[in-house]
Simulated scan of single mutants.
Amino acid sequence: MKVIEKKYLNSKKNLIYQLRREVEIQARLRHPNILRLYGYFHDSSRVYLVLEFAPQGGLYQLLRTNGTFPAAVAATYVRDVAKALVYLHANEVIHRDIKPENLLLDAKGVVKLADFGWSVKMDPEVRRQTFCGTLDYLPPEIVEDKPHDKAVDIWSMGILIYEFLVGSPPFQSDEMDETYQKISECKITFPENMDPLAKDLIQKLLQTEPGKRPTLQTLLQHPWILQNASKQTPTIPTQIERK
């Protein structure tokens, strides 16, 4: 259950519209790696979203607990999120806020893409220009206030892989302006011990020009995914055991 205070919705411009759009989009989605929205109701002070139960919580906390994810765990999560995005994009939806906080685990450890507050329906004739998402995951086109399309989700997958394997996003800085600059220039520092295949995939995804980013199908067929992702979704304990 997600509970939203009506006074919060009324406190900022466009929040009511954003919530309505979130409900309209998520309620129609049916995919094993997307959190179901079963319905909603409201009373005098709150709006309640009835969501699929994800008792194991979010990947953000799991990542903070463990520091990083082993390649097999990271690749499995990335593969399953990519499958969810293939479904979204096929249904003309851009998520626009891929990050560990918006990835939840159900009782079996299956990853579920959640929080469609920034999602939007695609128009093939129109590129979006809304400044949205989470700073560390923003692509250059949004930072530079340029029109954007579904390629923003591809960029976010590159950031996600890096954070899973390193423990922090690649462009994270203390100063916001410095983060903006790093994103625009795509300045990435890789650990010396990073798997060359993982590095190759991240570099392919984090292209400053949206048209040069690979498709999700290409991501799913990348050697790093094929060699590391589990054929069955593993049950991930709170504390990941490392061999």
Score class of each variant (00 low, 15 high):
P70R: 11
E241C: 01
A75R: 07
N228A: 01
T130N: 07
I98P: 04
T65V: 14
F131W: 12
I188Y: 05
S45L: 06
R242D: 04
E178F: 00
L216V: 15
H42F: 12
Y137C: 09
M1Y: 11
R96E: 08
G67M: 09
S44A: 14
L160T: 09
Y87F: 12
F69S: 06
H148L: 03
V143G: 09
K7D: 14
G133V: 12
F116E: 06
P191L: 08
I225C: 04
T215P: 04
K112W: 06
E141L: 04
L29C: 14
E192G: 14
L197C: 01
P169Y: 10
I240K: 08
T215W: 01
S11L: 03
I34Y: 08
I225Y: 03
P32F: 00
N33E: 01
D145V: 06
P70T: 09
V73W: 01
T130S: 14
A90F: 00
P210D: 09
Q129A: 13
F131S: 09
V111F: 07
T76F: 07
D106V: 02
L165K: 10
K150Q: 15
F41M: 07
V120W: 01
K7S: 13
L219W: 05
C186W: 00
L220E: 03
P170V: 04
Q227I: 00
N228G: 01
Q56H: 12
T65R: 15
L49P: 06
M194D: 02
V166R: 05
I34C: 04
D145Y: 10
T238D: 14
D200A: 12
H42D: 14
E185W: 03
G109R: 03
L206P: 06
I16N: 10
L15V: 05
L37V: 06
E92M: 13
Q18F: 02
R128C: 10
V23R: 13
L19V: 13
T68S: 13
V78S: 12
L197A: 08
F164R: 06
T76K: 06
E241V: 13
G133Q: 06
A107Y: 03
D200L: 04
Q203Y: 01
D149G: 13
I161T: 10
R213A: 07
Q221M: 13
I34Q: 03
Q61F: 11
P234S: 09
Y48D: 08
G67P: 09
G117M: 09
T215L: 10
E141F: 08
F116S: 11
V143K: 02
E22P: 05
T134S: 15
P100S: 07
I161Y: 00
L220W: 05
K13Y: 13
A84F: 00
K204V: 02
I188V: 15
N102M: 10
W224N: 11
T238G: 15
K2A: 15
D115M: 05
G158F: 03
R242S: 10
N33D: 02
A151P: 08
Y77G: 00
L165N: 05
H95Q: 07
E209R: 14
E178L: 10
L206F: 07
V86A: 01
V23L: 14
D200H: 12
H31C: 06
F41V: 00
S168E: 15
Y38K: 06
E144L: 15
H31S: 09
L205C: 10
P100V: 12
K146L: 11
